[in-house]
Design a protein around this nucleic acid. Sequence first.
DNA 1: TGCGTATATAGGCATATGATTATATGATAG
DNA 2: CTATCATATAATCATATGCCTATATACGCA
Lengths: 115, 115
Amino acid sequence: MNKTVTTDMQRASQLLKLLGDQTRLTMMKLLQSHDCCVCEFVEIFKMSQPAISQHLRKLRDIELVKETRKGKWIFYSINEDHEDYPFIQGILGHLPGQEGLVTELEAQGLRICCE
Amino acid sequence: MNKTVTTDMQRASQLLKLLGDQTRLTMMKLLQSHDCCVCEFVEIFKMSQPAISQHLRKLRDIELVKETRKGKWIFYSINEDHEDYPFIQGILGHLPGQEGLVTELEAQGLRICCE
DNA sequence: TGCGTATATAGGCATATGATTATATGATAG
DNA sequence: CTATCATATAATCATATGCCTATATACGCA
């Protein structure tokens, strides 16, 4: 009963802690509109590739995101099947869109396009 | 425009970081149903009084909670006027009620009643 | 096969966090 | 005014976090 609404406090606080980092939060919001690969994040956040990888790992460890290889790149996307996705979605819904970051990338010709 | 929905990313991630701690998250959820004083939190969380004070301070610093003195005690309550309260409320709404913690306190006769 | 590119992991370091104990503050009751 | 009780702050410490550089892995392609 009440399956849709309840998350236990420990899980919830762990999720919030992960989202409580500007880089990861922005990643999640961004992933809601486009899948991205690691090197795109590196450009967007002006951060070393290992730093990006480590943020993604944390998101992946609790299965908030999943990865898909496309050619040379690994694309990350939101795992909409996550048990707590409605919770996450509620949070992300209050945030301003981050599409501008991708637009900027495109302007610099750095957007990765496969196939 | 879009005043209701948008919180900037930095503020949002700071809020989420604060809520990304089980003690503080539980405090906030609890405060939605009852105001509490510091000594009640000490009992509920089985934690030292300074530890509780410091958590409350963090919540107070960004004005998520406010304090009111009642006799010897200082009661904390949610600041529903906070600009981001709708955001917070959305989050807390997904969490299981924590009234049980207060019920337990009452059972032990430790609930503070003023006036 | 072997090279280059994309990503992941390891190790190290500076800073942040959350707890504790000791002490200070501040209101109330006598 | 003083003693007491509730709460806040300070100092300290162990652990967690987030970044970097160096290195490993893994796939794609000549």
